[in-house]
């Protein structure tokens, strides 16, 4: 009993678990929403228009999907550090700075997934919309609607990536307790202090969140496939 109390106290006071959870959720929700807007718009645009060098753009997109977040963190850090080109914005060691970095990491993921789905879906939807006499706007709206589960899925993937990311958030946010400390950077800190139990508890919490997200994703995937009569 004492042990658990000890543990809870330690997590809550020393490392600031409540705050870390709050910061993680706030950051992940914001960066996922921003990335969804940019990523979906970019992905659909990329599918819609052909231009010279499009294949290169798609390839770069795919590369960025797998870019090590810590590299993005470094670049963002250099941009927003006091002497950097964006230093005047005062984003260094703030949640807003972390959201910026995460948006740069997740947008290519959502963009790439949206693009792949759109390439598969759009031709048939466009032909259908034409036969129905739909306008351009109606066609685009229909395409988004027809892809909605896939788009949710892309967003969930982005969110999952966001909550589990540590490198960029550490560099840009600085792991300030109660302020920019997230669940993942808290774990990193606990480890460096040699406090493994608490780290593991937080880790399990993250794992539980990831599991819930997977359940959601699975539900959506089933929603897409089920009831189809091939």
């Amino acid at each position: 009993m004492n042990g658990i109390e000890n543990l809870v106290n330690r997590l809550f006071s020393d490392v600031g678990v409540y705050d870390a959870i709050r910061v993680t959720l706030c950051m992940s929700v914001c960066s996922t929403l921003l990335s969804s807007v940019f990523g979906i718009a970019l992905g659909l645009t990329l599918e819609r228009f052909s231009f010279p060098g499009k294949r290169i753009v798609v390839r770069i997109n795919r590369t960025l999907m797998g870019v090590p977040p810590v590299v993005v963190g470094l670049v963002v850090y250099m941009l927003i550090m006091r002497r950097g080109p964006l230093g005047f914005l005062g984003l260094l060691f703030t949640v807003r700075g972390m959201i910026l970095a995460q948006t740069l990491i997740i947008t290519p993921i959502i963009c790439g997934m949206t693009y792949s789905y759109a390439v598969k879906t759009a031709p048939a939807v466009r032909v259908f919309a034409k036969t129905m006499g739909a306008s351009r706007l109606q066609t685009s709206l229909l395409l988004v609607k027809e892809m909605k589960y896939e788009l949710y899925f892309a967003m969930i993937s982005g969110f999952g990536r966001s909550i589990s990311e540590v490198g960029a958030v550490m560099l840009v946010g600085g792991n300030i307790k109660g302020n920019t400390r997230t669940m993942t950077t808290a774990i990193a800190l606990l480890k460096s202090q040699g406090i493994f139990h608490e780290g593991l508890t937080l880790g399990l919490l993250l794992l539980a969140m990831a599991f819930v997200i997977q359940c959601l994703a699975d539900f959506l995937r089933r929603e897409v496939r089920e009831e189809e009569n091939y």
């Binding site: 259908f128 036969t131 129905m132 229909l142 609607k145 027809e146």
Partner: peptide, 30 residues
């Protein structure tokens, strides 16, 4: 006008929705 022409495809595209929603789609957009 093109909007007065329609075509049923040899492999029809059905919306990911109910029969009803599919049926009324052309009315809805008009």
């Amino acid at each position: 006008k093109l909007t007065d022409i329609t075509m049923t495809s040899q492999r029809p595209y059905l919306l990911h929705d109910t029969v009803y929603a599919n049926l009324v789609y052309p009315l809805k957009i008009r």
